[in-house]
Structure formats: structure tokens, C-alpha cells
Nucleic acid binder design. Sequence first.
DNA 1: TTGAAAGCGCTAACAG
DNA 2: CTGTTAGCGCTTTCAA
Lengths: 333, 333
Amino acid sequence: MKVTMKDIAKEAQVSIATVSHVINGTKHITENKQKKIMNLIQKYNYIPNSTAKNLRQKTTKTAAMVVSSLPDSFVTEMVYGVEERAREMGYNLLLVNTNEVKDYEEETISVLHSRMIDGIILSPASSDLEYLNKYTSEDFPVVLVNRYTDLAKNTPKVTGDNFQTGYDAAFHLLKHGHKKIGMIYGVSNVSTTDERIKGYKEALKNYNLPFNESYMELGHATVAGGAAAVKSLLTRHNDISALFVLNDLMTIGAISQMKEFLLKIPEDIALIGFGDFASASIVDPPITNIVQPPATIGKTAFDVLLSKIHNPNYKKHIELPPSLIVRKSCGCV
Amino acid sequence: MKVTMKDIAKEAQVSIATVSHVINGTKHITENKQKKIMNLIQKYNYIPNSTAKNLRQKTTKTAAMVVSSLPDSFVTEMVYGVEERAREMGYNLLLVNTNEVKDYEEETISVLHSRMIDGIILSPASSDLEYLNKYTSEDFPVVLVNRYTDLAKNTPKVTGDNFQTGYDAAFHLLKHGHKKIGMIYGVSNVSTTDERIKGYKEALKNYNLPFNESYMELGHATVAGGAAAVKSLLTRHNDISALFVLNDLMTIGAISQMKEFLLKIPEDIALIGFGDFASASIVDPPITNIVQPPATIGKTAFDVLLSKIHNPNYKKHIELPPSLIVRKSCGCV
DNA sequence: TTGAAAGCGCTAACAG
DNA sequence: CTGTTAGCGCTTTCAA
């Protein structure tokens, strides 16, 4: 049987309250008893049951991170940032992956909420976040990360600046003379995709070029999906001269497919990828990427969650800027 | 204020026990009351407080995964596998990253243990796992994953077959005539490294070749570390004709460094990497890798944890076989 | 400086 | 079929 506070108290011949106080330093206890109790704790390797503590105090020092796709290097790096910061701040982190399934996301939040989690960092599967109001309206702390929607009014957000991301990538390509720029996105109806498309459109507008919906292609954020998207996109428009791919896995798939088509990068088609994945520089050709700082986004999100926990009115949207890492695949060097 | 079972009971004019029973289906309750209660639950969007439930039942339906390095694709994929299986089985997963710091690992396990976690899947920072006995001796379920030590006697283990991994990689290189094979490992004093070195030695022995400790180099499992390791290793032995690199990030660093040295792969130096990272096939040159199935290892580990929970005597060591994916970097095609 | 006791929200005998 | 009651292990008034 596991030793409890009661056991310690009995053996030390003090009350259970006294034990609690020496453990938490909540009251001053005679040095004598103090020592005795400490020794017993040592002896039995006693650690207070935090479930009981949680129940009593209604706080768990546990946060949850809910992501929509785990084996994506951007998400992974975000998780890394969140976990690191949580750990530094003495929190534990629950991790749930919803696999882009919205119903499961909703169920997850419900379960998490019932577990007296202190708060949730959510990278949602879709922009359809109405169900969140149920929780946010009772001041349950939620922060949106990476993806967001303006409908979540009172909810703070930490994301990359996706409009700028789309703008910068497109602008770079346009600047180098490309006029027909395809775009492969991973998921529809999410802010990351939508905002980047908006940025892309804005860049086109600055060049007095029309936007063509048909240059957009869904790639499902996988290697195979990226390959398939290239196939379908180039079949539809064989005059595309540049490609902006919104995710690392799809970028890899896209490059494979282009190699199969014997298309040279960047001579036949220029390419800009997204995210600073480790191998970008040794791929053939080295990939020009526009990057956002996932680990920083994660860390910041946790800090924001803490703010939200302490101040329910906190609702900033923090947008971190992107940067362009120019290598060979965009053809400008 | 949050609504509790008591509130529901009062409004439904039944006892709290009755409410509990309809929620859990533990007893048969008149349809009439049943409905009434259900409606109230719906109306107030009531969800039982699982912390209280946990305290009462002494089970949390929560497992923890403790890893030693998070932004490593192999570890990430393991986490993915564990999380997926946990979710399928109705468990939540706590994730902690120890960053290869052994003391923090020990502290983590202690904290987790006090949280009434149902069990822990641990990928340890070192082979120094004596502290675990404190927990395993009281039948607290722990399973070792990826890395292990034989000292953890009563603890089940799920790992790749690292001896075979080392053997196969070395054998492949030896078969193609290489005699001086360098090896870059990420961490010392862990079974993954040790066993692979043993396998490598065994392969050498079969070719009547001597083992030279000096061909081993530590690369710290990072891109920069991989690059540095190549530098140091080739400075020491400029006659090395093949390299076996035990981690994806180091492989990328190694290749970068070799390119900087204007060394051609595989002509000047052949290379075998580890792990099936997505970009391996589009890197220049495409990388021959020996792979273990991280997601499967993760899933299996969770299943084993469940076995351990239900049967404290369970203590198998499951070793999953590696496979070689031959591409250009090893020079045999 | 210490202890008694109430209670966090729930489950599970047990009794009726 | 339903309610009473005794806890799970801990914190925290309140009194002594």
C-alpha cells in the first residue's frame, strides 16, 4: 500500500494538518516536529498525492496541447516549444493529436475540460470554433496557436504572420519575373492557408496580375499528397513557372514528382517551400523556404496561456513575422 | 460556478448516487428518472469531474511518455505512435521531454508517479536506471522504449533490434569492399548506440577485420554535431571510406560538412544513415538508410504498457527488426 | 504552534 | 430500483 499523509502523521505523532504544513511551508512548525516529519518523508519516500491536492485546490498545474497533425515538423517544433516552456514553469503537458478530425477535437476539449486542466493550447482542425464559446464563456483558459479564427473573440492567439508569409513568398517570385505561380496548400478552411492566399493575392495585385483560383491545389500535408498535387496542377496548367508549397512534407513530395517529370528546379519551375526543415539545405536543389519560428510560437503560446490563466480578459493576437531563406530552388541566385 | 453531480441530483430530486448510476450505467434506473437526469445533464452541459473520479477510483486513464530528446524525427514518430494508440484505448497522454538530463528524468518520474498516472513509457537518457526500482518494486507500471538496460529486470521493453541494425549496416558496407568504416553516434552510454556498435564489431569479425575505437565519434544528435563529428573524424583518419551515421539530423550535418570538404558521396566516402526521414530520397545524393519502425515501436509500447498494467509480471523485451533502404549514398547501385 | 473537522466531487457498498 | 453513507488524500478555516 502506498503511504499517505495520514501514515506519516501517525508515525510522527502529529496531526495530518501539521504534516501538510511542513510540506507546503504554510505555517511555522517547531523545528523538532519539522525534522521528525521530514525524516519520515525521506524514509518512506513519500510524495503527496497530487490528484487529491488538485481536487482540493482546483488547479492541476497541467496544461494541454491539442494539435491537428502530429508528424508535421512545424507542429512538432511547436510542441517542443510549448513543452519546454511548460516544464520551465513547473507545468505538465498533456498532448493530444486530433488528426484534423473536428469532431474528435471537440470531444477532446470536453474531456480535457472535465479533467480540471488549467488551460488548453489549441491548434484547431478548422475555423469552425463556435463550440469553444461554451468553455471560454466560463473563463476556461484557451489559447489558439498557429491557426485561428476571428470568431473566437475573447481568445488570445499566437500565430505566424501568414498574410506576410504569402505576400513575401509571392513577391519574391514575382520580382524574379514569374507570372503564373501555383500554390499547394495542405488543408482548406484554416487561417494559415487562407491568410497566405490573401497575401499572395495582394502581391499579385501590386503587380497588376489577376488571381486565378485554379492555380491553387490541395496537397493534404503529406509527401504523397504533395506529389499528387503537382501532378494534377501541372496537368491543368502546364505553363506554371513557379510553385509555392505550404508544408515541408508536401515540398518533398512535390520535388520527387517534378524529378519524375524530368522537370528541372528552378530552371523549369521555381519553388519556394515553407518551414525550416533540417534537410532543406542538402536537398537537390537546396530549397528556398519562407519560415516562421515554430518553437518560438510554441513558447510564446504557453506564456500567453499563463497570462490568460491569471487574467481572463487577456486576448491579444501575437503575430510573429516570417523570414525568407534564399537557396537555389527559387532560381534567383 | 461549475455544476456538479450534487446540483443535478437536487434539481432532478433524486440522490446523487442515482445520478452517478445513470451516468456510468452501473445500475438500472427507472426510465422516467433516467430521462430527467439526462435532460438536466444536457441542459447544464454537465461533465463529471474526472479528478474526483480519479481520486476515488485510483486510476486516471492517463499514461505518460517521457522522452529524452524531442525534436528528433525518430522520437517524434514514436510519440505519434504512442499517442495514437493511447487515444484509441481511451487514454490521455502526458508528454515530457528530459533533454537527455538524467536528474530531470528522475525528478519527472517522481512527479508523474505522484500524479496517479496509470503508467509510464520511458525512453531514458542513460542506462543508469537504478532509481526506477523504487517504482517498479511497488508495481508501478513502467515500460522502456527505444533505449533499455538489462538492469531494469522486471521492466518490459520495446525497442528496435539495434545489434542487427549495426550488423546489417556494417555488413552492407563491408560487402562492398569498405574496410575503414567510421561511425557517428548521438549519445553515449545508451543501448541504441552500444548495441549498434556491438553489431558493427560482429560484422567486422566476420570479415576478420579489427575494431578500432578511434573510428567512433560522438555527434550529439544535432545537425551541427554531425558536421563537427565528420570534421574531427576525418581529421583523425583521412583514410575512412565509409560512414555510418546513427541519426537523421547528424546525417544532414555530415553531408553538409562533406560537401564543404568537396568530398563526393559515395565516390569518396560512402554513407549509410539511420531512420526513414521524409527527405532521404530527394537529398543529393539520395541516402541509403537503415530503418527501424518508430511509430510501430510506439504503438507496441503502449500495448505493452496496458499488458503491464493488467499483469504486473509481464516483462517481455520486444525487439523489432530493422530494414535497409538502399539508395545512392552507399555506392552499391 | 498545533489539531479537529469540514469538504473538494465522485463512487460503491450496503440497506431498504 | 433508490438512497444513505463512508471514504479517496489532501488543504484550510477555526478554535484551542
